[in-house]
Amino acid sequence: MRLLVFGSTGQVARELRQLAPEARFLGRAEADLEDPAACAAAITAFRPEMVINAAAFTAVDLAEDDPARTHRMNAEAPAAMARAAVALGAGFVHISSDYVFDGAGVAPHQPGDPVAPLNVYGASKAAGEAGVRAAGGAHIILRTSWVFSARPPNFVTTMLRLSQDRPDLLVVEDQIGGPTPARALAEALLQIARALRADPGTSGTYHFAGAPDVSWADFAREILRQAGRVTQVHGIGSDDYPVAARRPLNSRLDCTRTEAVFGIKRPDWRAALGTVLRELEEAT
C-alpha cells in the first residue's frame, strides 16, 4: 500500500515511522498545515493509495489566542487533504479528538453523538471532521484522547519532570477519560487504513482510547507509582486549576464500534505505561 503520512515529529507520527518505515512522511517543511493548498498539492504529487493525517495544532490553550490559525491548520488543511485524496481515489484516515464533545454526563460518547466543543481547539477539530466528511470518498475519522508516549511533551513526561523536585502535586480529578498509548494508536491507524483500502464501506467515524477510564489525578498517581516516585498527588476540581481553554469533564469514548468493525480492542494503558517508563529509563 502506497502510504502518505502527514506528520513527522509528533508522538503518533514517530510511532508510525517505526511501524511503517516504507511510508512517505511529511513534516512542516514539506507540507505546512498553515498552507492547505500545499498539503493538497503534496498528495497530488505523491499519488498515494492511502493518506493518514497525524498532524495538527494541539496547543489547546494557545489556540484560544489565535482561532483563525487554529482553524486553518485543524479544519481547512484536513478538508483540503481529503478532497485531494478523493480526486485520486485514495483513502483518507484522520485523527480527531474527544474535545469535539462538551463532556456532559458520565456515559461514554458514541461516534454519532452531536458535537458541542467547549474551546477553539475542539471547534477546529469538529470543523475538520465536517470537512473530511463533506469531501466524500473513502475516509475514517478516528477520535482519540489523552495520548502519551516516551516522547515529550505529554502528561506522563510532565508528571515525571515535576515530581523530580516536588513533594506534592495538584492534579485535576473531575475530568475523566481514557489515556491512549501512542504506539497502540499508530498500530490501530495502520490496521484501519488497510481495512479501509480493502473495503471503502467501512468509512465513517470511530473512537479509540485506552482503558480503563480514569481521572487525570489517578492517571498521575499510577505514573508515579510505576516510576517509584514518592511525590503525593492531591486531586482538585477543574475550577481550581484555571486555564485559557475549558476542558470537557467527561472524555469517555465508546469504542465498541471500532472493535466490532476492525477487531481492535481498547489497549490497557497501565501496561503500556510500563513500557513507556522503561523506554524513558533506557534513554537516560
Rank of each mutant, 00 (worst) to 15 (best):
E15A: 14
L16D: 03
L16A: 11
L16W: 12
R17K: 15
Q18T: 08
L19R: 12
L19K: 04
L19P: 03
L19S: 05
E22I: 00
E22F: 02
E22Q: 14
R24Y: 01
F25I: 04
L26A: 12
L26C: 09
L26E: 09
G27Q: 04
R28C: 03
R28P: 02
R28V: 10
A29R: 14
A31R: 12
A31Q: 03
A31M: 12
A31F: 09
L33M: 13
L33R: 07
E34F: 08
E34K: 08
E34C: 13
P36T: 12
P36N: 11
C39T: 05
A42L: 05
A42M: 02
I43P: 01
T44L: 09
T44F: 07
T44A: 15
A45K: 08
F46H: 07
R47D: 12
R47S: 11
R47Q: 14
P48Y: 11
P48R: 08
E49K: 02
V51K: 07
V51F: 12
I52C: 07
I52N: 09
I52Y: 03
N53E: 06
A54V: 09
F57K: 13
F57N: 06
T58L: 11
T58Y: 00
T58A: 14
A59Y: 05
V60R: 10
V60A: 04
V60T: 09
D61W: 01
D61G: 02
D61P: 05
L62P: 01
A63M: 09
D65I: 00
D65Q: 14
P67C: 06
A68D: 14
T70R: 08
T70K: 11
H71E: 14
H71I: 00
R72N: 02
R72M: 05
M73R: 15
M73P: 00
N74D: 09
N74E: 11
A75Q: 10
E76V: 11
A77V: 06
A77D: 12
P78I: 14
A79N: 03
A79K: 00
A79R: 01
A80G: 05
A80D: 05
M81P: 02
A84I: 10
A84V: 03
V86R: 15
V86H: 10
A87R: 13
L88W: 08
L88A: 10
G89W: 02
A90M: 10
A90C: 04
A90S: 13
G91K: 04
G91T: 13
F92S: 06
V93T: 10
V93D: 05
H94C: 07
H94A: 06
H94Y: 15
I95E: 02
I95L: 15
S96V: 01
S96L: 09
S96D: 02
S97P: 01
S97M: 06
S97F: 02
D98H: 07
D98T: 08
Y99H: 14
Y99L: 15
Y99K: 06
V100T: 12
F101I: 09
F101G: 11
D102V: 09
D102Y: 03
D102P: 03
G103C: 05
A104H: 13
G105P: 00
G105W: 11
G105F: 04
G105L: 11
G105R: 06
G105A: 06
V106E: 15
A107Q: 13
A107D: 14
P108N: 10
P108L: 12
P108A: 15
H109R: 13
H109G: 00
Q110S: 13
